[in-house]
Amino acid sequence: MQPARNESRPMVSLTDIHKSFGLKEILKGVSLDVPRGHAVSIIGPSGSGKTTLLRCVNYLEQPTSGEVRLDGELLAPSGSPVGERALRPARRKMGMVFQQFNLFKNMTALENVIYPQMVSLGRKRPEARDKALALLEQVGLADRASHMPSELSGGQQQRVAISRALAMDPKVMLFDEVTSALDPELVGEVLKVMRTLAENGMTMIIVTHEMAFARDVSDTVVFMEQGVIQVAGPPAEIFAPGRADRLGAFLSRSARQGMETHA
C-alpha cells in the first residue's frame, strides 16, 4: 500500500537504529528525519558509525534493531532479518554512491547506466539508453560513454556512478564518502555535480570529510561520534567558530589536517 503523498512527512526517517557487529555496538540508537528536498551531511571522526548509519538506510547493513522509513513506508520490521528480494523495491527508490565507485567493471560507462534501468525497472533499451545519455551529458561525460571504467579517471568514474544511481529516479541519494578515494584535483568535479543536485531539490544524505562542502550545500549537518548523534543543526550553527564542545574539537582537528594535506 502506497501512503498518500504528504509534503510534511520526512522522505527518510530513521528511528532508534542500533547496529552491532558481534559484541561491538557501532550504532547506539540513532534517530534522524530527512525532510523532502533537504541535503543532510553527516560528519564525524572515523569509527563514529556514520558510514554504517548510511548503509543501514538501504539495508546494505541490516540494523540490529530500529526502523527505517522511506517516504512513510517501513522497509522491514525492527530487528528481524529480511531477504534480498523483499528489499529490492525500496532499494530501487534509493540511489547510492560509494567511496570506491563500484562501477560494473565489465561494462562501458553507458552500459553501466543502462543495465540497472532495464533489469530493475523493466525499461526498454531505447528508453534506458536515452536516459543514460542525457544523464552522462549532464555530468559532462557524453564523450566518455563508450569507455570502460578502467579507462576513466576516478572523478569520471564517480560521475558515471552518480548517473547510474540517478537513472533509477531515486527519491533519495545516499553518498558514502564519495570523494575520499579521489586525487585532490578531481574532488571538485564530483562536488560540483552534487551541488547541482542539491540545488535542484534532490533529497540527499551525504557522509563526508569535506567540511567546506558540507557547510555550503547542506540544510542540516549532523555530527556523529561513538555511535550516536552528538549535535545536529543548520550549518551556520554547527560551524559557528569558537565551539568548546567535542564538535569544536573535531572541527579544529580536521581543519588542521586539512591544512597539512593542502600544504
Binding site: L60, R92, F104, V119, S120, R164, M168
Partner: peptide, 27 residues
C-alpha cells in the same frame, strides 16, 4: 570478484541471478 560489485548490484535492486550472469561470472 570485488565485494563492491555485489554491493552496487544490491543497492540498485538488481536481482542476484542477473548480477551473477551479467557481471560476476563475466569478471
Amino acid at each position: 570478484v570485488p565485494k563492491g560489485q555485489f554491493e552496487a548490484g544490491a543497492a540498485l535492486g538488481i536481482p542476484f541471478s542477473s548480477l551473477l550472469f551479467r557481471v560476476v561470472i563475466r569478471q
